[in-house]
Write a protein that binds this DNA or RNA. Structure first.
Lengths: 234, 234
DNA sequence: GCTGCTAATTTAATCGATTATTTTCTCCCG
DNA sequence: CGGGAGAAAATAATCGATTAAATTAGCAGC
């Protein structure tokens, strides 16, 4: 039943059901549609996505390698949990990885890269100014902005790892967003980051990005904190 | 046909065939038993490992997320290629990642960690001295040594990424080893690294590790260089 | 001899059914 | 009334068969 199309009825783009399942699951996880810790029963997923067990399991296996899903032998899959410790560790890791990535991107980036940063920032800023509150379009622009910053880093492994971490952070941000979002000057943070990057100020850019990530983490932490001690299971 | 055993007849340890396939494939790739660029036909793998298509494909999906295998839509899987550019980029990435990992490991490591480094190094050195040439036992000790160095880095994501890169480098080293290995003073390199780490000399440790990785890469590069321009396919 | 087209063959992707494990439920005992 | 032992139900893992796609082979026309 492999489809030849590159676009399924449901909006996913993969040429194979495996790809399609991967993209849809990833999207649902990142959006928080499926909650952290939730058990993923194959039968449930089959009827939810209308995709058979094999491509689903293949997709889940890949997602587990990206830490979005936890795979437990003989016990299936569950959405990766989010805990205080996880969020702290994630923030640290993002700071460290982006430290390298931004440094090397600034080092290797040429004029064209610099322009693409300005452009990505402009697009994000413009959209942010004309619209209120978060939405998928803003999310996409925000992601593109952060990727533009480190796009000149010559290691695709590092860029990809950066994206993996971004995904994890994005997920917790989406879940936290339901909670709080007002008091943050995201636009200002982005502006200062761009300024530092354009000025080729490596340590300034690192410091600002670190702060950016820590604020994100703090919001997420305070969003899960009010809850009672984390239950292991749903 | 899932087995309940934790150890298959063939020496792999996974409780599921998926795990078993993953481990065996990974081992064969790292050992260079399956050559870079080689096409992985499911039927061939089925008879080779005596495992069905489903667990094999699931394992391959995970290996592709770790960059050991390349997954191409509708066209199956192949072992990741090794090229000059790949090796250079890999060496860079390892340097950068280990820069962070060793820094944070030294920062966070306590006395127990320090002892585990000394111990891992001793085991490696002892084995190295009593035996000549590379073998699986030495490989394991070498790996453990490098993991011990960064074991105190508090980010499990970073440690895992470090391992992923180690795997990739190990593979090319194994393939290159058939070529050349004599002129290198690995033991000396390790000794200097340990000395710097124990002295909590962050920049020294970084420099030495960088050199260590670059030498590894250079050997691998010179091993593939003599060949004619890389053929796209086997 | 080379190019491009179609048919045959191989291979990848996926499904439906089967087997093995885990989980849940019951019921009995202390 | 808690604590299992064992049966029943649910779920995960896997196989064998099927379908779709890519590749190869064969051939016609230039």
């Amino acid at each position: 039943m492999a489809r030849t199309s590159t676009r399924q009825e449901d909006g996913s783009v993969g040429a194979t059901l495996n790809m399609s399942a991967f993209e849809r699951l990833r999207a649902d996880i990142l959006q928080g549609v499926i909650a952290p810790g939730e058990k993923l029963r194959i039968e449930a997923l089959k009827s939810r996505y209308g995709i058979g067990a094999s491509p689903l399991r293949e997709a889940l296996n890949r997602l587990s390698a990206l830490h979005l899903v936890e795979k437990i032998d003989q016990r299936g899959f569950r959405i990766a949990l989010i805990s205080h410790e996880t969020l702290v560790e994630l923030a640290m890791t993002r700071c460290w990885v982006s430290e390298i990535a931004i440094r090397e991107s600034i080092r290797a980036g040429d004029a064209a890269w610099e322009e693409s940063v300005v452009l990505a920032h402009h697009r994000l800023k413009r959209y942010h100014e004309t619209s209120i509150g978060p939405d998928p379009e803003w999310e996409a622009l925000h992601r593109q902005f952060h990727f533009a910053l480190i796009a000149a880093c010559p290691s695709h492994w590092l860029r990809e790892f950066h994206e993996t971490l971004f995904d994890l952070a994005d997920r917790s941000r989406h879940i936290a967003v339901l909670h709080d979002r007002s008091t943050r000057d995201v636009a200002g943070e982005h502006q200062r980051i761009v300024d530092a990057v354009i000025a080729r100020d490596v340590s300034g850019a690192i410091a600002l990005l670190n702060q950016h990530f820590r604020i994100t983490a703090d919001i997420a932490i305070s969003a899960i904190e009010p809850q009672f001690p984390p239950q292991t299971v749903e």
